[in-house]
């Protein structure tokens, strides 16, 4: 079992000054898996990823990445991991091809020319290969970054919010690419804020305030949380929402277009409140619903914040 694990770290901790950014992070990712890494801004996702690829040294904890020790063998890890940073971090004053050439040289690739050519073809960068990277739009930059971090054929890709600020079509193509890569045996750890992307991952981990709060498949995480959810439809929803918030058992009321989405941790209490509200506000239709991943994460985030205070 453990030989199958590409990432296997236990109790990683990282502090910056007095800020405890990552607390006791344990993570196991199997080969060929697309592993989603979720959590609010500032939750420690980027720091965790940087520790995995040897850019940051954990204060404590242990583990391996591709079989190399995350503390002592960072040089080996760097050679075999492809890391895509959150911000575009290639050289804006180099062209697409020059960037890829440079990255190829950094990994000491023998067949650099062929590999760069292949990467350009594969990601459809051919028409832009002589453009300066700085002149590319967000979607093209993201493709270039992906091409750069897979150039040396790493066995593990660490992607830090790769699709932030990218249009839906480019995102879809991007995920297509990720799934094709995973099919060839590459393991992918990807952090994201998008729920639709989270659902495309094989497994997920949710991290908030430096703590890992949940992990498993999307369905497992939703089921485990056992959140109650109701939808309310009708006219003038905006006026109704504030009246539902103070009801017992209601944690969140969110407007989704022509529906209100009401969730609560206490399913029975929520059901009682909703049935009573249904009688009181006869113009609206109240119906139980299946909670989504987003409901679960928002609920967990609130709990985590309460724990911290």
């Amino acid at each position: 079992m453990s030989s199958d694990l590409v990432i296997d770290v236990r109790n990683l901790n990282k502090r910056f000054g007095t800020k405890h950014v990552v607390r006791d992070l344990s993570l196991q990712v199997s080969a060929g898996e697309i592993y989603g890494f979720l959590g609010p801004n500032g939750s420690g996702k980027t720091t965790s990823i940087r520790m995995l690829c040897g850019l940051l040294t954990p204060d404590s904890g242990s583990g391996t990445c591709l079989g190399h020790d995350v503390i002592r063998q960072t040089a080996e890890i760097k050679r075999e991991v492809g890391y895509m940073t959150q911000r575009f971090s290639l050289w804006e004053d180099l062209t697409v091809r020059e960037n890829l050439d440079f990255v190829g040289r950094m990994y000491g690739m023998r067949n650099r020319r062929d590999a760069v050519g292949a990467a350009i073809d594969r990601l459809g960068l051919g028409s832009r290969e002589h453009d300066l990277a700085g002149s590319l739009s967000g979607g093209w930059k993201q493709r270039l970054s992906l091409a750069a971090c897979m150039l040396h054929e790493p066995r593990l890709l660490l992607l830090d919010e790769p699709t932030a600020g990218v249009d839906p079509k480019a995102r879809r193509e991007f995920w297509q690419e990720i799934h094709e890569l995973a099919a060839t045996g590459v393991t992918v750890l990807v952090s994201t804020h998008y729920m639709d992307e989270a659902e495309r991952c094989h497994r997920l981990a949710y991290i908030a305030y430096g703590r890992l709060l949940a992990r498993g498949t999307a369905a497992e995480i939703v089921a485990e949380r056992a959140l109650g959810a109701w939808t309310v439809s009708g006219d003038e929803l905006a006026g109704l929402a504030p009246k539902l918030v103070p009801l017992a058992g209601v944690d969140h009321v969110t407007v989704f277009g022509s529906q209100l989405h009401v969730t609560g941790r206490d399913r029975e209490q929520l059901a009682r409140s909703m049935e009573q509200a249904a009688r009181q506000y006869g113009d609206y239709r109240f119906a139980p619903a299946a909670p989504g991943l987003e409901d679960v994460f928002i609920s967990m985030m609130d709990n985590a914040r309460d724990d911290r205070q």
């Binding site: 850019l55 760097k78 940073t85 971090s89 290639l90 990255v103 950094m106 990994y107 000491g108």
Partner: peptide
């Protein structure tokens, strides 16, 4: 400053 250092560091250079 441009953030490219992170990329440079992530390579074996």
């Amino acid at each position: 400053e441009r953030g490219t250092f992170e990329n440079l560091l992530s390579t074996p250079a």
